Simulated assay, not measured.
Amino acid sequence: MAEPRRPLGGGGAGGEGLGRSRGGFTTKLHLSAGGRCRPLSLIVTPGQRADCTQFKPVLERIHVPRIGRGRPRRKPDSLATDKVYSNGPCREYLRRRAIRHTIPEKTDSQIARLRRWSRGGRPPGFDEERYKNATLSSEPSTD
């Protein structure tokens, strides 16, 4: 029996971001939002796709139109994320693009770094107050 053809435009399970994960047949939404909880970019992937692999594509899709003339902004002033993005490649990408960031360090990474004493390097800068303010300011206001 011949396999059914996918619809034009890439629809079907692959085009819809459906995939298998521990929870079953799922989809993941990778989203970046501004300080007022307005979406800036969105990527839909199958459920088994790792979050950190979509970090760069989500940030590269940010296009904030300018008021008046000029190209849209493509770089946020600062970024606050959760521990998922605490790995070296994500931090290096942010440094290369000169984006200020606040990312908490994973506990296992912290333990491994401390175990190496002075060879473990210095901890990544993390301002807990700035992280709290960034996550609190992203909640919708009731004004």
Rank of each mutant, 00 (worst) to 15 (best):
A80F: 01
W117I: 08
R66W: 04
R61D: 07
P7V: 08
R116Q: 15
E105L: 11
E105Q: 14
P124I: 06
S21V: 07
Q110S: 12
R116F: 01
P7K: 13
S86W: 02
R97V: 01
C52T: 14
K83R: 15
E129I: 13
P124D: 13
R69K: 13
L8H: 12
Q54C: 05
Q54M: 14
H101A: 10
R38P: 00
R115G: 06
E129F: 10
Y85I: 06
A134Q: 11
F126C: 08
L8P: 10
I99K: 02
G17P: 03
T81C: 12
A13F: 11
W117L: 15
R22N: 13
S138E: 05
S41C: 02
T135L: 09
R115Q: 12
G19F: 03
L42K: 00
D77W: 05
W117S: 13
G88M: 09
E129L: 15
A13W: 09
A80Y: 02
E129W: 11
G88I: 10
L8Y: 10
G125Q: 14
L136K: 14
F25A: 13
V64P: 03
D77V: 09
C37H: 14
L79A: 04
R115W: 12
S109D: 13
S138W: 06
G88D: 13
Y85T: 02
R71N: 08
E139Q: 15
L79D: 01
R122G: 12
G34Q: 04
N87S: 13
L40F: 01
G24V: 09
P76G: 02
S32L: 00
P7R: 14
L42D: 01
S32Y: 00
G125E: 15
I43R: 10
M1A: 10
R74I: 08
W117M: 13
S118C: 08
K56M: 04
R69H: 08
Q48N: 15
K75N: 03
T102L: 05
F55S: 01
S32F: 00
S78D: 08
T102I: 10
Y131Q: 11
